[in-house]
Design a protein around this nucleic acid. Structure first.
Lengths: 259, 259
DNA sequence: CGCAGCGTTGAGTAACCTCAATTAATGTGG
DNA sequence: CCACATTAATTGAGGTTACTCAACGCTGCG
């Protein structure tokens, strides 16, 4: 297939085509995985797909066949509800695994949409289960993966439940700065790959509120943003903002307003 | 997690030891689990604990030893953050499993606090892993459990991110009515085991806002609450409220205010 | 150039929060 | 058992945040 050929040339570092050596797939070949299992794992990779910007990796309602590992690019996961409301539940970047929320019902819950040209590996869930049975390390690794996603969503629940708009945006920028590929001398400079609309949906805010929060953060001199290019100018200040509680925040504002 | 409670079918094999026949532990002895594995599973249950109201089942920071299954009573899971903020991330009822967010880091993330006198089974995670390796059904069941929790938190993210206070409370009451033990002729009458404070924390609101939302729902004749005793008087109306989008809600309100 | 999409800014409003007071339930010691 | 203190729940008034609706600027593209 064509996408197999493209997979051979994809990674930037020198790699042969096999899964077990793939840097991006370290999650599914943890240290200690025996060679035969590694080979079986490699064989369970049933497709390597490229998704053009705006394209769907999968749609909610499809039956779960494979889990997907992002090799390059970025995707958003969106959840659509009975009333038609849509929310972005996460952004998937290199090394992230998509589709794990589908295991419970065997049906994908989320649409997965590429925000830029992306490529993924698909791994058949059923085969993966068989392999992990004889590879305890792999099994545990998978459990940790699922558990980490739970912990992550708990963090997000806190964010959505008890942070102001500005704090949410500050948190988001900090999260992205830690996950984004470094672009420049230090990690403080990076590019947001998603629109304001996507950010607002993810943070449970309106588009305009995200904008206003961003300009607020700029006026506070903790970041500088032009369109989607971000520079974190005061990392400590940014984190301080996030940790501030509501009461402290009001106090700070009052102190500022009355010099 | 909801499907755990509904997965209460009796195991196929009948053993005299208590675990495999335990109604509340159907999640860990799914149909098809071979007798020897069921026995090993039974042996992996290392403790059965009773927790008095207000007591801790475990505290955040403890290393993960066991997963816990609630046998009776109800507990809340709370997450404490760097800035000292605390949020209720869930309420655990009969059949629910606690501690699964600890697998990623091997450290419990949540405090688990009994809201009423409760009892749980603890199952050693390490042993559970060994057993599930030879019992594919059990393994898959566990994955479904983890995945269901992810799907549940995604739902909650939507709730926190895009519902009004009144909708959140309506949603919460509906959730509880589905999960609560029936108390009376139909499922429309039940008791909330948690305080308004806990509800507000869970829903990302303030205590007073929860109260006002509740009285609002009473005035709309969809429910009747006295303290913690709830009657759902108009289930369809309640669900309709939840599905209503912001714009529709405003329109409905305007129509109501201008007769 | 003119259009289209994304991002930003402004004015007014609705939703929710804060502070404060009141009432209802629960517990406690005499 | 009752008076008292304590906690939980409710209600009210006023302030703050974030939303709605709307206009405008920037960037890229045919």
């Amino acid at each position: 297939m064509a996408d197999v050929a493209s997979a051979r040339e994809a990674p930037s570092t020198r790699l042969d085509s096999s899964c077990p050596n793939c840097r991006f797939l370290a999650w599914c070949s943890p240290a200690g995985l025996a060679a035969p299992d590694a080979q079986r794992l490699h064989n369970a990779v049933v497709h390597r797909r490229s998704i053009a910007r705006g394209g769907f990796l999968c749609r909610a309602g499809e039956t779960l066949g494979s889990l997907y590992v992002v090799r390059s690019g970025i995707l958003k996961a969106t959840l659509t509800h009975e009333n038609g409301g849509v929310q972005v539940t996460g952004f998937l970047m290199t090394g992230d695994v998509a589709g794990i929320d589908a295991i419970a019902s065997s049906v994908h819950q989320c649409d997965l949409i590429a925000l830029e040209d992306s490529s993924v590996c698909g791994i058949r869930y059923a085969e993966f289960m068989n392999i992990s049975r004889s590879a305890p390390e792999l099994q545990h690794h998978f459990h940790r993966l699922l558990s980490a996603e739970i912990a992550r969503t708990h963090e997000l629940m806190f964010l959505l439940g008890s942070m102001t708009a500005r704090q949410r945006v500050a948190m988001f920028i900090l999260m992205q700065s830690k996950r984004s590929p470094v672009r420049g001398s230090d990690g403080s400079r990076f590019t947001l790959p998603m629109s304001r609309q996507d950010i607002s949906s993810f943070l449970g805010l309106k588009l305009e509120t995200v904008c206003r929060s961003i300009t607020g953060l700029q006026r506070s001199k903790v970041i500088a943003i032009k369109r989607r290019d971000v520079v974190i100018e005061d990392p400590a200040g940014l984190e301080a903002l996030i940790r501030l509680k509501g009461a402290e925040k009001s106090a700070a504002r009052r102190a500022r307003d009355r010099p």
